[in-house]
Each structure stands twice: as structure tokens, then as C-alpha cells.
Nucleic acid binder design. Structure first.
Lengths: 191, 191
DNA sequence: ACATTAACTTAATGTCGTTCATTTATTATT
DNA sequence: AATAATAAATGAACGACATTAAGTTAATGT
């Protein structure tokens, strides 16, 4: 399914295409999903799971270095979005008929990813960054910036991949510089 | 049409609905638009025009105060997005079948709005803010943040309007504070 | 008055999601 | 192992919808 989304560059995929990719007829799908919307919701969930596990393993590997994780985790996020633009759009801008009522940050799905970001920011705080700041607020700001940049890039169908990557990476780097600037002076060099 | 988009909360509007809103039959529409995609592209263009004129009049009224314009212009942008969520989504996240190949910042449509933002930032620069910074880069960052916050809020169908407004406004205010912080000290108080 | 064009309408076609009755395969029971 | 019960899948059919084709009406120019 995720493959199909990527191939079609659109989540308006005919059920017959899904069916023949799976090796059955369209009505057979209704044994597993109540309707097409439910199928797409499942694909969306799968997308969130992939993104989550990707970021989770990264956060475990870099537990000792929250600041570094924040950067690398953001890079991973951006790469995921640029590598799976259609899936990303399904996750973060689903059509209303999917019946996805809440945004990714409130629903159980995206919430776990958001919590990883929160943990990263809190980790930075224990290292002296962002002291005295409202982490929830800052996390929303951080996510908004990256998400917005990714959205604008994904939308563009003429820009090549490396140009997109550099544009969004620049946004991430700027955010990281801003966080670095909140640390007491002696930390500035080491990063 | 714009009314219809708002009413249906979705741009997957049947042509028959458009037709009867206009007072004719679906095939009659083909005299004015090559197909449904062309009709939606026209609605999208109308959306960009409204946003542009709104921001343009604001920028003219506040020509003397670039920093203030940047804030108020952003507020206006956010209000437009939150007041017309479906139209905004059509403008910034159109389905691929519309044939809109470039992102809003590259196309003629959104480019004019982007130029207004650039002009605002340049104006701030002449007032001593953001000295020595790459304005194009900063504009992308600025737009990304606001756009991302707006996207996340629009996506949420349970949050009430004032909560959304406050969340995005907070992002804008944070951005403005960051710009204010780039000015030489004596400017900090007056804002 | 009559041909021509424009704007519309009704009718028809094709795609697609979805439902339903029926058939096929699978499991359970004796 | 044979048969009943159940689950799963299929083919045909329906309804919604975009789009095209053909025909109708109204207006315009000569």
C-alpha cells in the first residue's frame, strides 16, 4: 500500500489497483477494511509507526547526546518526509473524508512522535539549553517550522531532491543554532 | 465557489453542486472551464488574489512601520487561513491531479504574497533589524513557521477557533521577538 | 425570413466505490 | 472420512460522479 501511494504520487488510488497489488478483487478488501477511508487510515497509521520507530531507535542510540539527537532526529524526520512525500501528506494533511478529526499532535499516532521531540528538548534543557522555557510551546514552534518547510518543499514538483533537502536542512540548522545560542557561553564551541 | 468550499469543508465538491449553486447543469460548466481541475485552479487563484489584496492594503497603510506591518501582515495571513481553512488547503496543499506543479513561493500566484513578506523583512532591515542576514533564507524560515503552525491547527477539528488562533499567534509573536532581538539595544523597548 | 453561432440541456459513457447474492474454500463435528 | 457450518472471495449490479456527444433553443447578422 505504501508502495502504491509512492508510485501513484497521490492517495486517490483506485481500489482495483490496491486489489490487484494484493492479488484479489476489490470487494474482497471489504473483509479487512470497512471502506476505502479505513484502508487509508491504516496506511496513515503505518506511516506514523515507521516514522516513530525510526526516530525511536535514533533516540536510543543517542541517549547521551540530546542536542545531537534533536538535530539528527530532525534530519531523519525531514528525510522521511522527502522520501515518502505522498505518505507524509496522507499523515499530516489527510482529506476530510478520512474522518481523521484531530491533528497529528493530539491523536495517539502522532503524539508519540511529538513526545520524542519533547523528550529531546527536555534533554537539551538538562544540558543547559533553553533554560526556563516552556517546552511544549517551543516544541510546537519547532515542529511547525520543520513541518512548514517540508510542506512547502513537497508541494514543489520542479525542485530537485537535493535542493529540497538543503532548503529544509537549512531551516533545521537555523533552529539548532537558535537553541545553541540559549546555552551559557562555554557550550557554544563544543557544537 | 469559495463559499461552496467553505460549506463542504472539502474541495472534493461534486460538479452538480457547483452547477446548481450557479443555476445551471454540470455540462454547462465546461463552457467556462476545461475540466474540474481547471475550475479548482481558478478558485485557488481567487484565494491567492484575496490574500494578496488583503496583505497589500495592509502594507500600504503601514508603509511607515515595516516591523509593525510584519506582525499585522502575519496576523492577517493567519486569520485568512483560519477563516478559510479549505481554501487555504486548496492553495497550499492542492491534490496532485490539479496539475499545480510548483509550490506557492515559486508560482506567480504565491510569489506576489511572498514578495510582500520579503518587502516587509527588507523594511525591517532598513530599520536596523536583521542586519547582515540573508533575507530570502529568513523569509523561507518565517513563512515555514507560520505556514506549519497554521497547517497543524487547520488539521485539528476539535480545537476551537480561539485556541487555534492563540497557538498560531504565539508562533508569530515568538518570531517577532526573535527579529526584535536582532536590533541594536535602544530599539528593544519601543516594541 | 433564414442561416449561423452561442449557450444550454438531455442523454449517454466510463470510472469507481460499494453492496449483495452466490459460489468456493475452510473448519468443525460426528 | 463425510457432512454440516462458517468464513472468504467472486461476479454482477447499483449509484455517484466527471466528461463527452448530440440535439434544442435563443440570439444575431444578412
Amino acid at each position: 500500500m505504501v508502495r502504491l501511494l509512492a508510485a501513484r504520487d497521490d492517495f486517490d488510488v483506485p481500489l482495483v489497483a490496491v486489489a490487484q497489488a494484493v492479488g484479489c478483487t476489490p470487494p474482497a478488501l471489504y473483509g479487512y477494511f470497512r471502506n476505502k477511508a479505513a484502508l487509508l487510515r491504516a496506511a496513515r497509521e503505518e506511516g506514523f509507526n515507521r516514522l516513530y520507530t525510526e526516530k525511536l531507535t535514533l533516540s536510543e542510540r543517542m541517549r547521551a547526546n540530546p542536542f545531537g539527537y534533536l538535530r539528527e532526529g530532525s534530519y531523519a524526520y525531514v528525510r522521511f518526509a522527502l522520501d515518502n512525500p505522498t505518505l507524509y501528506r496522507l499523515m499530516f494533511a489527510p482529506p476530510p473524508n478520512l474522518g481523521v478529526g484531530d491533528d497529528p499532535l493530539s491523536g495517539d499516532l502522532g503524539r508519540r512522535v511529538f513526545d520524542l521531540l519533547l523528550a529531546g528538548l527536555r534533554g537539551c534543557q538538562t544540558q543547559g539549553f533553553l533554560s526556563g522555557m516552556d517546552i511544549n510551546r517551543y516544541a510546537f514552534m519547532f515542529w511547525s517550522s520543520v513541518h512548514g518547510a517540508v510542506c512547502l518543499c513537497i508541494q514543489n514538483r520542479v525542485l530537485d531532491e537535493t535542493a529540497k533537502w538543503e532548503a529544509v536542512r537549512d531551516v533545521v540548522d537555523t533552529l539548532m543554532r537558535m537553541i545553541a545560542a540559549t546555552a551559557p557561553g562555554h557550550l557554544h564551541r563544543g557544537i
